[in-house]
């Protein structure tokens, strides 16, 4: 059965309304996107939506109790809560630098968990 879905592209803040015609996993037509990013966004959205996961990780002996982190690339939306649990169980010792890989290849997605800021050690 051929289905139609209207998506709001989130590749950039412009937010194009993209219309996708598809049957199962097969894309028939994509309309409304202003750039090629919209095309690939719509394809992925239909087949398997993926997102960057930004969250925090617990820090030991840091200036703050938490360090913000993110996945280095988009991971499947359905893996989010599982990834949150893995990250939530981890504690990293300060100091940490922005870009430090804190967890490698989370859930075999090919994405690493990296720090998104410097976290100096606690000033005693």
């Amino acid at each position: 059965m051929i289905e139609t879905k209207t998506l709001t592209c989130v590749a950039c803040p412009k937010g194009c309304e993209v219309t996708v015609e598809y049957e199962g996993d097969e894309i028939i037509e994509i309309k409304g996107n202003a750039c090629p990013q919209g095309q690939s966004y719509a394809e992925e959205e239909i087949v398997a939506p993926t997102r960057i996961l930004p969250t925090t990780i617990k820090v030991k002996n840091g200036a703050l109790a938490l360090c913000p982190v993110k996945t280095t690339k988009q991971i499947p939306l359905e893996n989010m809560f599982e990834a949150m649990e893995i990250i939530g169980n981890k504690v990293i010792e300060a100091p940490i630098s922005m870009g430090d890989v804190l967890i490698e290849n989370i859930l075999d997605t090919g994405a690493d968990i990296v720090a998104t800021r410097d976290m100096p050690a606690e000033i005693k």
Binding site: T56, K58, L66, F81, M84, E85, G88, N89
Partner: peptide, 14 residues
């Protein structure tokens, strides 16, 4: 506390 609710009942419903 942060991370305390992860994997809890609330999340199973999610």
């Amino acid at each position: 506390k942060i991370k305390e609710l992860l994997g809890s009942k609330v999340m199973d419903n999610a």
